[in-house]
Design a protein around this nucleic acid. Structure first.
Length: 153
DNA sequence: GCCAACGTTGGC
DNA sequence: GCCAACGTTGGC
């Protein structure tokens, strides 16, 4: 079965595709997701799936590259850490409400695909990213994946 | 279980 | 920095 495709949103000020690249093979835990719909998508992610890395809240919002899912969902321990900005007082060691996955760097696009370009492409204008701009983890269809890859090459 | 108030996100 | 969209909270 071919891998599923996802889109992960990040603010490049906080963590960018370059930061992910710098992590190398160690990868990065994708934590701090505090939205149920996004969490439920996270939990569907499987090792080997691909994820577009989207830069939001920056000068040029754009899909910046691709990552690979290294480890499927497991409890996001940051929810238990009262010093973390991702602390969740309703989570307990027995019942952590939130999940994270681990991802590794795959590709940085020479030409990031800007939100403006995405919106101008009929096939992509229906993407969850466009329709529900606040969702930080969203599925990408095979067709969307192929169109995006064609546009960034 | 409804809904108003409030907080957050993110494009512009 | 503004503001629209939307998720969450909490009073009733």
């Amino acid at each position: 079965m071919s891998p599923s495709i996802w889109l992960l949103k990040t603010e490049p000020n906080e963590f960018s595709i370059d930061d992910l690249k710098a992590r190398g093979k160690a990868g990065e835990p994708w934590d701090g997701i505090r939205n149920y719909q996004a969490r439920n998508f996270l939990r569907e992610m499987q090792k080997g799936d691909l994820a577009f890395i989207y830069h939001s809240a920056c000068d040029v919002p754009a899909i910046a590259g691709l990552a690979v899912v290294q480890k499927s969902a497991y409890p996001d321990a940051a929810a238990l850490d009262s010093s973390s900005k991702y602390y969740d007082e309703k989570s307990t060691p027995d019942n952590i409400r939130w999940s994270r996955v681990d991802v590794t760097f795959k590709t940085k696009f020479k030409q990031p695909l800007s939100l403006k370009q995405i919106k101008s492409e009929p096939v992509l204008a229906d993407m969850k990213l466009v329709k529900s701009s606040r969702l930080s983890v969203s599925p990408v269809t095979q067709q969307e994946y192929e169109v995006i890859m064609a546009l960034v090459n």
